[in-house]
Design a protein around this nucleic acid. Structure first.
Lengths: 152, 152
DNA sequence: AGTGAAAATTGGGCTGC
DNA sequence: GCAGCCCAATTTTCACT
């Protein structure tokens, strides 16, 4: 998909705030509504824009704690990895999961209310998944940055 | 902020898709538009809903690579940490940054086009920040899950 | 032919009952 | 919860490059 600087300006604006009116964003980037909306449509249909969502405030909802969890499986074959991936995708507490190169483990970002709920989640859900050999947790002291914007 | 199950249903729906009409979401959770919109307003003003954004598709935009970078500073005093935090917040490639407990380093999630751009970013931007002692990168082989939804 | 502006129609969000 | 108003979004048509 080919993008010019105007397309990127649109994407940057919508990444920051998708609730502004099209008139307003169009004016800001020096376009009128029609060509602006044509471009937005094209970006949506071309897959550049995946979806529109509400971003919640975890702290305000009592979900102030993020934990990074590293998991090693007993086997690294495709079936074990796929089974683990499928299980993790169903867990709402697991917000992110990456299969890492090198050590060949998983890195998870887990969102919970507090340490106690994390302990329960790890003991009763995470370690009970098929093929989990060992689990190591890393705890952030402070969230420095948490953006949903990518550098387009 | 006190939430009942209806509020949580609203939050879950808006986290998944914020572009559906209020009539549609209201009907799904068994409410009519007016009380639904009253609740949404309350959730916005109470800070439970932080913002509405477009989520882009990194792969479709040629930003298919996520890198985790771990950074140690020469000093862990407040001034060093704050200076580093401020610098990192200005870098669009750094999507997430956490000050970690224990080893007392930073964990960054960096979004780039490919390894070459990451090498450039690390050599010319990251390692030139004040107080950076050492940098270690971890590379995901596969994105298993990447959600913007928290478990309300 | 492709892009931008203007106008008209539709339909959702909001405010009175 | 319902009805009407208002405004934004969309679509069509027109003008320009």
């Amino acid at each position: 998909m080919q993008l010019d600087e105007t397309d990127r300006r649109i994407l940057r604006a919508l990444q920051r705030n998708s609730k502004r009116t099209s008139t307003e964003i169009a004016a800001e980037i020096g376009l009128s509504q029609t060509p602006y909306l044509r471009r937005v449509r094209r970006l949506e249909e071309g897959g550049a824009i995946d979806r529109y969502v509400a971003i919640l405030n975890p702290a305000a909802l009592g979900l102030g704690m993020t934990i990074f969890t590293r998991i090693w499986l007993t086997g690294q074959d495709g079936r074990s990895v796929d089974a683990f991936a499928a299980a993790v995708r169903k867990m709402p507490e697991v917000v992110e999961c990456h299969l890492m190169a090198g050590d060949c483990d998983f890195l998870l970002r887990v969102v919970v209310a507090d340490i106690a709920s994390y302990r329960h989640f790890q003991a009763h859900h995470l370690t009970r998944l098929p093929g989990v050999q060992s689990v190591k947790t890393e705890i952030p002291m402070q969230q420095i940055k948490a953006s949903t914007e990518i550098p387009v």
